[in-house]
Computed example of a mutant assay.
Amino acid sequence: MEYRDRGGSKSIKNIIFIVTKDCQLACKYCYLVGKNSNEKMTWEIGKQTIDYILNEFSQSKGIILDFIGGEPFLEIELIDRICDYFKVEAYKKELVCFNNYRFNVSTNGINYNSPKVQEFICKNKKHVSIGITIDGTKRKHDLNRIWKGTNKERGSYDDVVKNIPLWLEQIPNAETKVTISSADIPYIKESVLHLYSLGIHEVNINCVFEDVWKEGDDRLFEEQLMELADAIIDGGYYNDYVCSFFTEHIGKPMDCQMDNQNWCGAGKMLAVDAEGNFYPCMRFAKYSLRSKDALIIGNVRDGIDKNKLRPFLTLDRCTQSTQECIDCEVASGCAWCQGENYDAADTPTIYQRSTAICKMHKARVRANNYYWNKLYRKLEKEGEREAFENNKPKSNAPKC
């Protein structure tokens, strides 16, 4: 999404509301280093943001409002009010998007069954998508996703898993996002299979982008993925379930002349915080940064500063990658986070790509090759390859 002159772009717009920086949990791998209970969006800022969106992007064919935190459902009354205001104003202005919109919420799932959340879901059931984060087995989930303010590091698995049946009933094709850090590598296989057993058919899973990896983690990672590959193929899960670690078209060289797209969507989305400041992505807000200043590109009163946004619109793979990354034989599918690039860079630049996950990506590629080679050998032996290729489950997850 490019930000053009008022009303000039007809693409779908994605707006991220940081409604609170508070959360019930203190997840050990969380990149939000500045969570607190003080910074909460007011109704006035929420209203001004909607007014700005509907004015600036009045010709957009669709609007997506993303609500994040912290834990966004701590501010369910504000979210509900913002969404109601959006619907009424879009209808009154007779905008194209008045019936082409979606409300996305990323939640830890703890408050999912509360009356106010359920009322919000029922009211917007045709236009709402909710992602609940559950990391896998109780052992893996509770290793990192712990309640804040406790001395015993009480895990949150039991508080989340009880809401999964209701979530799966209300949100068709619901998917979860699993995060892998150094400490929980040994539990990858059992966790993915456990999520399948809960009825979750799509597991989107990724390694943290921060430099947390230890010597030998890549070897353990590869072993776990190969064991998972065996379990998925031998158990026949591949027909109905998706794990994003196994993606057919990764691990190949990249040609900057043919495919030079930026991986991350920073600059093509818009995030707004409690003070009404705009960011190219929520990862550029201060509470997401360890060592750099926030990178603000405007606010709800003055709009977007296109000079501050312009560098993000020029980002591509080659302008921020080392020659080693450009020439890498398994470059395709190697991801990065623009906010982490900025935070980890030697200088305040967005053009220095962080390579902390290099070894982990290469390990994933080796396991991915093993998965597809084994799967297709099995399908060919059983005469089912063509049927599988015509009907194989596809991920619904966005790239970033």
Results as ranks from 00 to 15, higher is better:
residue 79 I to R: 01
residue 270 L to E: 03
residue 200 I to P: 01
residue 281 C to P: 05
residue 252 K to E: 09
residue 232 I to D: 09
residue 248 E to S: 14
residue 248 E to M: 14
residue 254 M to W: 13
residue 233 I to F: 13
residue 308 K to D: 12
residue 283 R to E: 15
residue 123 K to D: 06
residue 40 K to V: 11
residue 93 K to R: 01
residue 227 E to D: 14
residue 62 G to Q: 03
residue 3 Y to M: 10
residue 323 Q to H: 06
residue 291 S to E: 14
residue 340 E to S: 15
residue 131 G to Y: 10
residue 168 L to A: 07
residue 310 R to D: 11
residue 17 F to P: 02
residue 377 R to E: 15
residue 390 N to W: 12
residue 324 E to P: 06
residue 380 E to Q: 13
residue 3 Y to H: 13
residue 248 E to N: 15
residue 157 Y to F: 09
residue 316 D to T: 05
residue 316 D to N: 12
residue 19 V to D: 05
residue 106 S to W: 07
residue 106 S to Y: 07
residue 373 N to H: 13
residue 382 E to R: 13
residue 224 Q to F: 00
residue 205 I to M: 11
residue 168 L to F: 12
residue 276 G to V: 07
residue 239 N to A: 14
residue 368 N to L: 09
residue 124 N to F: 09
residue 133 T to N: 01
residue 342 Y to V: 00
residue 161 V to Y: 09
residue 134 I to T: 04
residue 216 G to E: 02
residue 280 P to M: 02
residue 274 A to I: 13
residue 257 Q to L: 15
residue 356 A to I: 02
residue 200 I to H: 00
residue 289 L to F: 01
residue 45 I to M: 04
residue 203 V to M: 09
residue 14 N to M: 14
residue 212 V to F: 01
residue 390 N to D: 07
residue 94 E to M: 03
residue 229 A to E: 10
residue 239 N to V: 11
residue 52 Y to D: 09
residue 264 C to A: 09
residue 390 N to Q: 12
residue 214 K to N: 06
residue 350 I to G: 12
residue 247 T to L: 11
residue 362 K to W: 04
residue 179 T to H: 03
residue 40 K to W: 12
residue 114 S to R: 14
residue 82 I to N: 00
residue 208 V to D: 00
residue 136 G to Y: 00
residue 338 Q to M: 11
residue 67 F to D: 01
residue 187 Y to I: 08
residue 217 D to Q: 06
residue 296 I to P: 01
residue 242 V to G: 07
residue 44 E to C: 12
residue 244 S to Q: 15
residue 106 S to K: 05
residue 143 L to A: 12
residue 226 M to P: 06
residue 331 A to L: 11
residue 107 T to Q: 02
residue 118 Q to F: 10
residue 43 W to V: 10
residue 132 I to V: 07
residue 248 E to P: 14
residue 241 Y to V: 14
residue 34 G to C: 05
residue 307 N to G: 09
residue 368 N to C: 07
residue 72 P to F: 00
residue 302 D to S: 14
residue 302 D to F: 09
residue 139 R to N: 12
